Amino acid sequence: MNLSIIVPVFNEAGTIKNVVVNLKNELGFLDLVNFEIIIINDASTDNTAQILSEIENTRIITHPYNKGYGAALKTGAREARYDWLMFYDADGQHKPEYIKKILPHLENYDLVAGERVGYQGPLIRQPGKKLVHWLAFYLFKQKINDVNCGLRFVKKNEFLKFAHILPNGFSISTTTVFAFLKEKLNVKFVPVEINKRAGGKSMVKPNQAAVYFMLIFRLVMLFSPLRIFLPVSAFFFLVGFACLIYDLTVMNISEGTIFILITSILIFLFGLMADQIAALRRELHE
């Protein structure tokens, strides 16, 4: 098979050289017809650029300014020559020996991602991650334990179909999985072990709760707004209907009852409109 490996880099001077060397060593043992390594330097401010200039047999693409992890992946995907893409982080966490364990699954799937075994991540992220995992089950009826692993394989043509709706930040990993599941594409998760982060610095920020809340809201509105609007509308309708029954018994329909019933109708209509807009947006570039 032919494979384009995309490695996004931002201030990973301490790890990028070893990551690429280990990656090349592993790729040499695999049954690949052709492969290329594309490194996207997302405007690093350390000496990453100098180190990249010393690495041979790779394609180096440099952003003029920092665009984000997701933007780097999309840049690499657009520049890739081959039909299958492999995303691989530059911080030294991924173990290249797991690549050969994932490759056999590519024949039957459109996206195959690593599922980090025993990985919990920073405590501040746990509530948000649990909500995202619950949301995936609620929207797609599929249990997912890890939507953020950076090691993943994806068909180039399918990935680029969604490029216009994929975010430029780290939430691209979650959004990509949701997009593929929404379109009924075949998604597979393969258990992998990871190393302790060797370089760079974590991008965890104090506002993680707000970030995850906005991510969840965005995912719902993008992929299945009716799954939220419809239950809320039904709740208001049932309350309004109960109030209407009571009002009829006293022969006086109150303004509050009318307001609740109208609210339920408006929420339902907003849900229909949001669902149509979401569908049009997903299909915009198809």
Rank of each mutant, 00 (worst) to 15 (best):
M1D: 08
M1K: 12
V7M: 07
P8G: 12
V9C: 14
F10W: 14
T15G: 10
I16G: 10
V19M: 09
V19L: 10
K24C: 12
G28I: 04
E36D: 11
E36A: 06
I39R: 08
D42K: 05
I55K: 12
I60D: 06
P64L: 02
Y69P: 01
A72N: 01
A77L: 06
Y82P: 07
D83T: 08
W84M: 08
M86Y: 12
A90W: 00
H94Q: 11
P96W: 13
G114D: 04
R116Y: 00
Y119N: 01
G121T: 07
K130Y: 06
Y138W: 15
F140I: 02
K141S: 00
N145C: 08
V147Q: 09
N148K: 05
A163M: 07
L166V: 02
I172Y: 12
I172W: 13
I172R: 14
T174D: 15
F180Y: 13
L181H: 04
K188F: 06
F189R: 08
E193Y: 01
K196S: 08
G199M: 11
K201M: 08
N207Q: 04
V211I: 12
L215P: 02
L215H: 02
L219Q: 07
V220P: 02
L222R: 15
S224H: 09
P225C: 14
L230N: 15
S233R: 03
F237C: 11
L244T: 06
Y246V: 04
T249L: 13
M251W: 09
I253S: 14
I253E: 13
I260T: 14
L266E: 07
G271L: 08
M273F: 14
A274Q: 05
I277N: 13
A278N: 06
L280N: 02
